[in-house]
Write a protein that binds this DNA or RNA. Structure first.
Length: 729
RNA sequence: AGCGGGAUGGGAUAGCCAGGAGAUUCCGCCGGGCUCAUAACCCGGAGAUCGGACGUUCAAAUCGUCCUCCCGCUACCA
């Protein structure tokens, strides 16, 4: 359906926006390194490409954290923005443009998107119930409220059930809301909000998903959502921090209604804005953002046309990029993504990162280690397939570097170029053999295939495979023996090796850009290898070059020991006393900090001391909300006798009980596993709600509910010896 | 139980979508070679019923069905 790369259209590669709310760690960097490598690979193929990104500045987590620190959200977010901007180049991640969602370009671009939706009649207003803090008299959007998820019953944030079922929650959905500002129960108030009518675009999205390229997870996962009924997206929030909703009544640019746009509206639009900034800087002759992003198809066409839009993200935000985002683009008359590449998590020594336990290797840790950024890049890109999880560890890094980069790649380059320089002052005067030329062509082919299949790992493998061939080749021909016996043959072999070295420089550029440039210079080539295409892999190297240097150095054992020790000490320090939140937060696995999802806060978390006090059990006030006697009578409470109790495999708390309720034997599930000795339960009289709706937990049917008091689940029983089945009234 | 990811020589991984001689790469083990090279590199070897069972096929690691086990997330009706 789509043409192979390179195409005549300009391309844009984007990475999920880092959320300006915390430090970056080596897990986050997987996306940025991969995007950078992929973008560089497209350039090697001759594709015109812009690589853009920006910081995500809005949303409630930033507003909440800024408020905690007593600074305004803009100052707070800008600080992280600047930090990110400085960090990326340290990993050779070089965006053509790096903006942020709060800048003038994105503010205006976002408003123009919204105006287009309004003009195209995709927006409607609806009164909805939103959480409200009565004490401070303010609305409580998204993370300003916590409560119970209506789908799974877990504690959830206002916009996302982060601990539970991971669902996106629309405003007003959360149950038993509590203000995170005052800790008071929140009220619901009716407020008018704006919605993007996704149902208008359902048919379009179904076609879109069939056209979408990229990794399998990104292509398959959204089908479930798109084929179901799409819920309209609430695009506004009652808060100050964000981009004002462009009110129809007010003058252009003026905000209205005290509403700002939901952070997931302006965040992806930054992809467009950032491209525009790049375009404006280099000139539209060089790169035209509108050619990429605008829809250039016929007005009636069902398929938009434009440039090649490629999104590199973590797989926690697939839904936003394959459902909401294309709908947003389509609704505003824009082009659609060609591919979404979603990567897996990064684990640390086989376990998930845990920022709250400080069990993480931060970007700064790596920078301070003094190790070359290309080593990290190689390790993370080739450590597993892109969609699979990948493990980061200092030991793993050492093994890969010492064996593959030093032993295979570096060694081949060094021995070849040194031999060439000593014996021929550079490139021997003869042509490349057919064998070697064929080998290089095959490597180029493999590289091209990796790009077309969106397999970043293949980009890193290609140069190492070629070096491996080189080592075999040089060993097989032993030119050091031939210099006297057959000088012509020796020159031929070394000429081949120099050509292989040059090809390796070109092929390794995407993943190992710094090292590739160093090699390029050693070869006596002018300029940067980043300026040449793949065809340079087969063109003649300069006649002369100087003595080469070792491109990679081994990582010594004591270095690794030291790095491991530092990490262990830090985990120890953080874990020893620094009480986690009750749930011991792990970071959104791979750390796509993009958007408000996938974010977890730092140590301060969301338990504020007053709530988890096990010490002074506050007696819950008795509710004023009276029920009538009739209503009470609806409950059918019965005495029951426990016949058996067994643990439910896999559940922390649940036990399966068989109880005798006189007329029959019931099976019920109760969350008492840790609180009672199950073996001692049979024979115990308990009280159950006999007419509770049946449900299934862990695949076990629960037909009724056991009653118990308080946190310790003190079982309700009878004072006398009422028979099982006796009704309680 | 649901969703997702796995199960491939001692460890870690590729191959599976587009079936074709039992399979990649890295480490480890055994033996040999080379000495241009960063104690590097090259060659050879031991070692596997490609989790299990059916099925489709001339042909299955690869496709289908069922099953077992592992991991992650979810579900924990107090």
């Amino acid at each position: 359906m789509h043409e192979e790369f390179p195409t005549d259209s300009p391309a844009v590669v984007t990475c999920g926006l880092p959320y300006a709310n915390g430090d970056l760690h080596v897990g986050h960097l997987r996306t940025y390194v991969s995007g950078d490598a992929y973008s560089r690979a497209l350039e090697r193929l001759g594709q015109s490409v812009a690589f853009v990104c920006g910081s995500d500045m809005h949303g409630t987590p930033i507003a909440v954290n800024a408020a905690e620190e007593g600074v305004d959200p803009e100052t707070f977010a800008l600080e992280y923005h600047e930090q990110y901007e400085e960090t990326f180049p340290k990993f050779n991640v070089e965006f053509d443009n790096y903006g942020h969602t709060h800048d003038a370009t994105n503010t205006e671009m976002t408003r123009s998107f919204v105006r287009s939706w309004i003009d195209n009649d995709h927006v409607f207003e609806k009164e909805i119930e939103v959480a409200w803090d009565a004490e401070t008299d303010q609305p409580l959007p998204d993370r300003f409220v916590e409560g119970t998820c209506p789908y799974c019953g877990e504690t959830a944030r206002g916009d996302e059930c982060d601990d539970g079922c991971q669902r996106h929650l629309e405003p007003g959905e959360i149950e038993a809301p509590v203000s995170t500002i005052t800790g008071n129960p929140a009220e619901y108030r009716t407020r008018p909000h704006k919605f993007l009518r996704l149902s208008d675009l359902q048919e379009y999205l179904q076609g879109f998903i069939d056209r979408l390229e990229g990794t399998d997870n990104a292509k398959n996962q959204p089908r479930e959502w798109i084929e179901g009924e799409l819920q309209d997206l609430c695009i506004t929030r009652d808060m100050d921090w964000g981009i004002d909703y462009p009110s129809e009544g007010a003058a252009a640019g003026e905000g209205g209604d005290d509403l700002v746009l939901y952070v997931w509206v302006d965040a992806p639009i930054e992809y467009v804005s950032s491209t525009k900034q790049y375009s404006e800087r280099v000139g539209s002759d060089e790169y035209d953002w509108e050619a990429v992003w605008k829809d250039h198809s016929d007005p009636d066409s069902e398929v938009p046309e434009g440039g090649e839009i490629l999104h590199v993200i973590g797989h926690d935000i697939i839904q936003h990029h394959t459902v909401f985002w294309p709908a947003m683009l389509r609704g505003a008359g824009f082009n659609e993504p060609r591919a979404v590449m979603a990567c897996g998590f990064v684990n640390l020594d086989g376990e998930a990162f845990s920022t709250s336990r400080n069990r993480a290797v931060w970007a700064d840790d790596y920078v301070e280690s003094g190790l070359d950024p290309d080593l990290y890049r190689y390790h993370i890109v080739t450590g597993s397939e892109f969609t699979a999880d990948v493990d980061f560890s200092w030991d793993g890094l050492q093994e890969r570097v010492n064996n593959e980069l030093v032993g295979t790649l570096g060694n081949f380059l060094y021995r070849s170029l040194l031999f060439a320089e000593r014996n021929y002052d550079g490139t021997p005067e003869t042509g490349t053999s057919e064998t070697v030329e064929g080998e290089i062509e095959a490597a180029i082919e493999a590289f091209q295939e990796a790009v077309d299949a969106y397999r970043v790992r293949g980009l890193g493998r290609a140069p190492v495979e070629l070096a491996k061939f080189g080592n075999e080749y040089i060993q097989r021909h032993e030119p050091w023996k031939l210099t006297d016996d057959d000088p012509e043959k020796a020159a031929q072999v070394i000429r081949d090796c120099v050509q292989l070295s040059k090809a390796i420089a070109v092929l390794m550029e995407p993943v190992l850009p710094g090292k590739a440039d160093a090699l390029w210079t050693q070869l006596g080539e002018p300029g940067s290898v980043g300026d040449v295409g793949l065809e340079a892999a087969l063109s003649s190297p300069p006649d002369e070059f100087g003595e080469p240097e070792e491109l990679f150095e081994k990582i010594e054992d004591d270095r690794v020991d030291e790095l491991n020790r530092q990490l262990a000490e830090r985990v120890e320090a953080a874990g020893g006393d620094g009480e986690d939140g009750p749930n011991g937060e792990t970071d959104g696995p791979n750390g796509e900090t993009d958007g408000p999802n996938g974010e977890t806060d730092g140590p301060n978390g969301e338990t504020d001391g007053s709530k988890d006090g096990a010490d002074v059990p506050d007696i819950e006030p008795i509710t004023d909300d009276r029920v009538g006697f009739e209503e009470f009578k609806h409950l059918d409470l019965r005495v029951a006798e426990v016949l058996s109790a067994e643990s439910i495999e896999g559940a922390d708390k649940l036990a399966k009980l068989e109880v005798d309720v006189g007329v029959e034997t019931r099976q019920i599930v109760a969350g008492i596993k840790q609180l009672h000795d199950l073996e001692s339960l049979p024979g115990t009289r308990i009280v159950i709600v006999a007419n509770l709706e049946k449900s299934e937990l862990f695949g076990v049917e629960s037909n009724g509910m056991l009653l118990a008091a308080g946190e310790e689940a003190d079982l309700l029983t009878t004072h006398g010896d009422s028979a099982p089945g006796t009704k309680i009234q």
